[in-house]
Computed example of a mutant assay.
Amino acid sequence: MRQPSLDVLMDQVDSKYTLVVVTAKRARSFMEDGNSEGVNKGIKPVSLALEDIAQGKIRYERTREGIK
């Protein structure tokens, strides 16, 4: 499985920091479930998370607009 390019991923999120946080949370959810078909096939959870983000399956919401 090839990981999506950074250009495709950045179209889905607003910053690289957000990309890292969303990817980490999604990968953790794959590891906690353990019964995902991709994880069972030997594909790493981070790769699956990046693929989900690139396909637009993951949504996120920023709770604050910055430090005031």
Rank of each mutant, 00 (worst) to 15 (best):
G66C: 05
E61C: 10
E65N: 11
K25C: 05
E65M: 09
Q3R: 15
S29Q: 15
T18A: 07
I58Q: 04
I58M: 04
L6M: 11
E37M: 13
A24N: 04
K57D: 07
M1D: 11
D14W: 05
K57Q: 07
D33H: 11
K57S: 06
K41M: 12
Q12L: 04
Q3D: 12
K44T: 08
R26M: 02
T18P: 00
S29V: 06
V20A: 09
N40F: 10
A54W: 02
S29R: 13
T23E: 00
Q3H: 09
K68G: 14
L19E: 00
D11A: 13
R62W: 04
G34M: 00
E61R: 12
Q55G: 12
A54R: 04
E37L: 14
S47P: 06
G34R: 02
R64I: 15
A24L: 02
L19S: 00
L6K: 14
Q3V: 14
R26L: 03
L6Y: 09
G34F: 00
S5T: 15
R62Q: 10
T63K: 15
L6I: 15
N35G: 11
K57L: 09
M1S: 13
R26C: 03
A54M: 03
E61M: 12
G56Y: 04
Q55K: 15
L6R: 15
E37S: 15
K68M: 08
D7P: 05
L48D: 02
L6W: 06
G42D: 10
V21G: 04
A27K: 01
D7R: 13
L48M: 04
Q3E: 14
R28K: 05
A49R: 00
L48E: 02
Q55T: 12
I58A: 03
D11F: 07
P45A: 00
I58E: 03
R28S: 05
